[in-house]
């Protein structure tokens, strides 16, 4: 497919910044992403719930997923230019994320119920196997 050899300015995707400013900005986001990676690896070695006197892995899981959410938002927002994308494209992705949440919450709540009331109940009934 041939393309026009015109000199029309490609204004729409140029966010009005110089190449260097844009590249430096990407590098900054990248630095943030790497720091967050180091943070999440560090967090996995410590007991996040310690200050609140919580035991178990739940606080670690919440913390790890929060960091992942922040990282993915950075990629989504700046590398994938969600900040310059139209409302429709944002809506599509947001709708998919809502369905993701729906599936995760619905599935796991059903199985937590199953495990808590049915499996444990059955175990108690047969005398704590």
């Amino acid at each position: 497919m041939s393309s026009a050899a015109t000199t029309a300015p490609s204004g729409v995707h140029d966010h009005g910044r110089s190449y260097k400013a844009e590249a430096v900005f990407y590098a900054e986001i990248f630095g943030l992403l790497i720091s967050l990676t180091i943070l999440t690896v560090t967090l996995s070695y410590v007991n996040v719930g310690w200050a609140l006197d919580l035991t178990g892995r739940a606080p670690n899981i919440v913390a790890g997923m929060l960091v992942a959410a922040v990282k993915s938002s950075l990629v989504l927002w700046f590398f994938m230019h969600m900040n310059h994308e139209g409302r429709l494209n944002r809506f599509i992705f947001a709708f998919a994320l809502c369905l993701f949440t729906l599936a995760v919450v619905a599935f796991s709540s059903d199985f937590v119920w199953l495990h808590t009331y049915v499996v444990e109940g059955a175990r108690a009934a047969v005398g704590g196997m």
């Binding site: 369905l99 729906l102 619905a106 709540s109 059903d110 119920w113 199953l114 049915v118």
Partner: peptide
């Protein structure tokens, strides 16, 4: 349509509240 799938599972051992 996205939030009715469980009605196929009423007798499958679905959480009754769901």
């Amino acid at each position: 349509g996205f939030i009715v799938w469980g009605h196929h599972m009423f007798v499958s051992g679905l959480n009754p509240w769901m």
